[in-house]
């Protein structure tokens, strides 16, 4: 059986990749995808611990997160599409009209 620490390592790597993407990329679509990667890294951690501890709670949690994520993506994409219609861009540096 694969040791839990590998799963955690993988999850950490995925999270770091996602975080790096969110921080560095300017394309809103890519950023959203990176957020998904981070979220799935968390899911992976939860499932890994669920297996380790022999408890289903973690897995139930993951399903919950997936549903929320689906909803979030739907709304996020809708906002993005509408934004694109307004300013013809998906570059987040162009979304700065709310600065103080």
């Amino acid at each position: 059986m694969v040791h839990t620490s590998y799963y955690l390592l993988l999850a950490a790597m995925l999270f770091a990749i996602g975080a790096g993407g969110v921080l560095l990329r300017k394309n809103a679509l890519i950023i959203m995808m990176c957020v998904e990667i981070m979220m799935n890294a968390v899911n992976l951690t939860l499932v890994a611990f669920s297996r380790q501890l022999g408890s289903l709670t973690g897995q139930v949690f993951v399903f919950m997160i997936m549903v929320v994520a689906a909803v979030e993506v739907a709304i996020g994409l809708a906002i993005l599409v509408e934004l694109y219609r307004q300013i013809k861009s998906v570059n987040i540096d162009d979304f700065s009209s709310l600065k103080g």
Partner: peptide
């Protein structure tokens, strides 16, 4: 002073969160 922090650039906010 504080409103200067609200730059409007998402990258800055994300960096803050991170």
């Amino acid at each position: 002073t504080v409103s200067g922090w609200q730059s409007g650039y998402i990258g800055n906010y994300v960096m803050g969160i991170f």
